[in-house]
């Protein structure tokens, strides 16, 4: 299987099929990253399109110096931050949390599990919103997108040690915020 960098270099040479393959690999991750960032389902897909458009337009200038995913998530982070900052002037947190579930079929009977998950989404999103930006991004990239500390450091343009500190501090704060929802787990390992 070709690497992301090879596909991007083919895109640079005008091979649109290679870019379709790249999107196929990453669009779900980018979409969910943006969704967790904004908590707005209906806009996440448009923003994900915007991310890939930016990548595609920059293909001619692409240099394989960094891992493709770090470049991709750096763009996704910028797009999300810009959107959230712009949107926050016009929309309240309540409106954002109410927006969840808009795409769920209202005719389907809502089970307790769906209600619980919907509530947890709101609770987690609200807790995440209280974190400093870098702690939030570090946790989202490491926890949800599966990026390593090194890759996250590239996205945030900081050291690996700083990323570890962001994740640790953010995690401790989230423990405080979400204490009522935490259940004790078995022996130590995390």
């Amino acid at each position: 299987m070709e690497s992301d960098i090879e596909l991007m270099l083919r895109t640079k040479d005008g091979d649109d099929g290679a870019f379709s393959e790249l999107m196929n690999r990453h669009y779900k991750g980018v979409l969910n990253y943006i969704y967790r960032f904004t908590n707005l389902r209906e806009n996440s897909e448009d923003l994900a399109q915007e991310v890939f458009l930016r990548v595609y337009r920059s293909a001619s200038k692409y240099r394989p110096e960094a891992k493709f995913t770090t470049w991709l998530y750096k763009i996704a982070t910028n797009v999300s931050l810009t959107y959230v900052k712009k949107k926050n002037t016009n929309i309240s947190l309540d409106e954002m949390t109410e927006n969840i579930g808009e795409y769920e079929d209202s005719d389907v009977e809502i089970s307790d599990d769906i209600i619980y998950r919907k509530e947890m989404r709101n609770v987690i999103f609200s807790a995440m919103e209280t974190l400093p930006e870098r702690e939030k991004i570090a946790i989202m990239l490491c926890k949800y997108e599966g990026l390593s500390y090194e890759e996250t450091a590239d996205v945030l343009e900081c050291t690996v040690g700083a990323v570890k500190a962001y994740v640790h501090r953010g995690r401790m704060k989230l423990v405080d915020k979400l204490k009522p929802y935490l259940m004790e787990e078995g022996k130590y390992g995390m």
Binding site: D16, S20, M23, N24, Y27, K28, L31, N32, Y35, R36, R41, S44, E45, A48, Q49, F52, L53, Y116, R117, M120, R121, I124, F125, I139, K143, Y144, R171, M172, L174, V175, L178, K179, Y181, L182, M183, E184, E185, G186, Y188, G189, M190
Partner: peptide, 29 residues
């Protein structure tokens, strides 16, 4: 404290992923 920290990571997993629309790539082009 350690248990809560571990529990937090499990709790974060309850935030489900969303499924993208099937025509994401064709919409892009």
């Amino acid at each position: 404290f350690v248990s809560e920290s571990k529990g937090l990571w499990s709790l974060l997993e309850t935030w489900d992923e969303v499924e993208p629309s099937g025509d994401f790539i064709s919409n892009f082009w």
